[in-house]
Nucleic acid binder design. Structure first.
Length: 735
DNA sequence: AGCACGCCGACT
DNA sequence: GTCGGCGTGCTC
């Protein structure tokens, strides 16, 4: 297999660099016994060493003329990557057009570095504080603080100065200092599993439909479609119970919303000791440890965000994808994978059940379900017969006609808010734009203040007293006069959450109002902390961006206001409508989750827009029918697969040139079967000082599309530098 | 992605 | 005369 008799043997290694190629290394006979596909190996790579993964061994000898280097060492402490995981990462590399090494890197836990050691001190038998000289006050005191029986005491429990004294005592031979690897923190789970509620008839019916698939050990995908509050979580929990009882593992994916710990503790209560948590809020160490515990089979149920898709669960029986339509399943940087789509791949490979849930399924998933490729499970009714909220559209044109001024918060919403607060209930107000003003406008010349690096308007933040670019972070002082024409009559345009908060303070006197957006909740736990305060009733009105739409069940919320609901409908993105519908449905679902009925006010200028009416009556299927017609007509997903290519350079002419070459290659390689849109300026033509040209390629067959894109990328390899290219297969957002 | 090699501006 | 800027190219 590996060359001449008695000759060297070779291994094919995937290295973590963005080069879609494998590298051949020589395997020393001494390593042969420990090596296998999936082994992590330290290899020389150019002038440095990298840790790569053996993907084939033994492998064919290299082409003549390449100077093969030997594998340095085989890393054994982490163990090899399982064949299943190796295969999944190979799929990621092929499908999302990244290198296999990069795919493996994202599937593995972060390198946590050496485990922190705990140092402990112990008094040696002969040591006696009284034997020390009377002048050695500190040493006497510190020695006396150590137990006479020689029990260990952590160094951490001493003051820093005393620790130095201890070291001196150790030098003298009175004290011994020992090192001990830090143990992973004990779980502290409740021993008694919590009993869940009795399933509603709807839940029971869905579970009956699921049962044969759960027991069958065969790939079967389902879409669980049910309104907010219809009790999807209980279905997930019961399905998980069933699969765990069969001895198989469960993976439960949730969107990235900072509430994962909350959900996980609820799940843990039902399955004490079985649940591992995997999300980006954890430290490297915690993620690393959780990964190892899962791989060792100590946790059979993993709750986590996007990257948990790669959790090394053996014999996986079920993947739950909650809120499957959520955009956070799509990774923004390389590899740009979608965990929901990969869940299909993984369940298929592992002969497991896929259970995706949503109140507003993605167009893709609902279309699959309608076409019979996914089992469609409808969950009707609301838990405890809670009525749907009353949704009213507020016509802002009429509002303008009455008051002759543009008011971001209508009189109708203001009075509802006052009444709500007076009743002692709570309200949410959604405005999908942060800052005080969306733009600074010059009425003299008609220009707006734009970011010097990006083709976007600068946002005015009053509390920070800075103009900020939300794309590159550039911040400036408010200009004294117009940067374009020099006159000093600059006006603010478009109210952001900061301004809305202010307006509400005036409109609803006496109410406690807080704001939740990326400016007010930074860092770990801030998001959850604010929501907890809201939950405890310490806040009457919570204003914020779409952040407030996701999350928890707030029983005291009876009013939801949405400002400029139709604004996002005009965005140059084929998913704009879908996203607005999802957001409106989601935020409307926040109203009236307790005993009292809820009211939702949706403010818009284009109140005739069918989508707003469909959202108002919570008619997902009517929305779907309209949207599916539009997608079919324009051949957008789900009626095609789509790849977005962006060519970036400081020089606009250079970007155009390269994009032209790439588009031509795509035309050629597509052999007339691809729809090649562009090249043309990307929706955000300039970002961080670089010009961006966009090409959108689509066609019905996704394998064919990806293969053609791959060939085109290879064809322009010498011409277009790799770093100038962004390739996004199945993009979620085109902006 | 690193990292080295390689050709043009402000400094001891 | 060098130190160093980051453009280009390669990594078995």
């Amino acid at each position: 297999v590996s060359g001449a008799p008695g000759g060297a043997s070779y291994a094919s290694v995937a290295v973590p660099v963005p080069v879609r190629r494998l590298f051949t290394y020589e395997v020393d006979p001494s390593l042969a016994a420990t090596l296998q596909a999936g082994s992590r190996v330290r290899v020389p790579f150019g002038p440095r060493k990298v840790v790569g993964t053996v993907v084939e061994w033994p492998a064919a000898p290299p082409e003549p003329g390449v100077a093969v280097k030997p594998i340095d060492t085989v890393l054994t402490h982490a163990g090899p990557i399982s064949p299943a995981l190796l295969e999944l990462t190979r799929f990621v590399a092929d499908y999302y057009l990244c290198s296999w090494g990069e795919a493996i890197e994202t599937a593995l836990p972060p390198d946590a570095g050496p485990r922190p050691v705990r140092r402990l001190a112990r008094r040696l038998p002969a040591a006696d504080p009284d034997a020390l000289s009377a002048r050695a006050v500190a040493r006497k005191r510190v020695l006396a603080a150590l137990p006479a029986d020689g029990t260990l005491r952590p160094l951490q429990s001493f003051a820093p100065t005393d620790r130095r004294v201890l070291r001196a005592l150790a030098k003298q031979g009175w004290v011994e200092i020992v090192e001990q690897a830090e143990e992973a923190a004990p779980e502290g789970e409740p021993a008694q599993p919590a009993r869940g509620p009795t399933p509603t008839p709807g839940q029971a019916a869905v579970l009956r439909e699921l049962e044969p698939a759960l027991a069958a050990r065969e790939y079967k995908p389902f879409l669980l479609y049910g309104a907010t509050g219809s009790g999807k979580t209980e279905v997930y929990l019961r399905a998980s119970r069933r699969v765990l009882d069969l001895g198989r593992g469960v993976l439960w994916l949730v969107p990235e919303i900072g509430l994962t710990p909350l959900l996980a503790s609820n799940v843990s209560a039902r399955f004490p000791g079985t649940v591992a948590l995997m999300h980006s809020g954890l430290s490297k160490r915690q993620r690393h440890d959780a990964w190892l515990r899962v791989r060792d089979g100590r946790h059979r149920l993993v709750v986590g965000t996007r990257s948990a898709l790669f959790a090394p669960i053996e014999d996986l029986g079920l993947i739950v994808v909650d809120e499957e339509q959520d955009g956070s399943y799509k990774q923004a940087d390389t590899p740009r994978y979608n965990a929901r789509d990969l869940a299909v791949v993984r369940t298929r490979a592992e002969r497991a059940v896929l259970l995706m849930g949503s109140a507003t399924p993605s167009m893709e998933s609902f279309q699959h379900a309608r076409a019979g490729r996914y089992g469609l499970l409808r969950l009707g009714g609301r838990v405890r017969q809670r009525p749907l909220p009353e949704v009213r559209l507020v016509d802002m044109r009429r509002e303008f006609g009455l008051s002759k001024q543009v008011k971001p918060v209508s009189d109708e919403l203001a009075s509802e808010l006052r009444a709500c607060v007076e009743r002692g209930e709570q309200a949410l107000v959604l405005r999908n734009r942060r800052g005080w003003a969306a733009a600074v406008f010059c009425p003299t010349c008609g220009s707006r203040v734009v970011c010097p690096n990006c083709s976007v308007t600068m946002t005015w933040h009053l509390s920070a007293a800075r103009l900020r670019c939300h794309y590159c972070g550039n911040a400036e002082a408010f200009p004294e006069c117009c940067p374009t024409c020099g006159t000093d009559s600059l006006k603010l345009l478009g109210e952001g959450t900061e301004r809305i908060e202010d307006i509400l303070r005036e409109a609803v006197p006496g109410a406690t109002i807080e704001r939740m957006d990326r400016d007010t909740v930074r860092g770990r736990g801030a998001h959850e902390k604010l929501l907890r305060r809201f939950d405890r009733g310490e806040i009457d009105i919570l204003v914020g961006t779409q952040m407030i739409a996701k999350g928890h069940d707030f029983p005291r919320v009876t009013l939801v206001g949405v400002l400029s609901a139709d604004q996002a409908l005009g965005l140059p993105d084929f998913r704009a409508g879908e996203r607005v519908f999802q957001l409106l449905t989601q935020v409307a679902g926040r109203a009236g989750r307790g005993e009292r009925p809820g009211t939702v006010l949706i403010q818009a200028f284009d109140t005739e827009h069918p989508l707003l009416h469909q959202a108002a009556v919570q008619d997902y299927e009517a929305f779907f029918e309209d949207e599916v017609r539009y997608r079919r007509a324009l051949r957008y997903p789900p009626f095609s697969a789509l790849v977005q290519l962006i060519v970036i350079d400081r020089e606009p002419s250079q970007a155009r040139l390269w994009a032209g070459a790439l588009a031509a290659a795509l035309q050629r390689e597509g052999r007339g079967k691809l729809i090649v849109g562009g090249p043309g300026p990307a929706p955000l033509e300039r970002l961080q000082g670089r010009y961006r040209q966009q090409i959108l390629v689509r066609t019905a067959g996704r394998r064919r599309l990806i293969a053609a894109v791959e060939r085109a990328l290879r064809a322009v390899e010498g011409e277009v530098p790799r770093r100038a290219l962004h390739v996004d297969v199945d993009p979620y957002s085109l902006l």
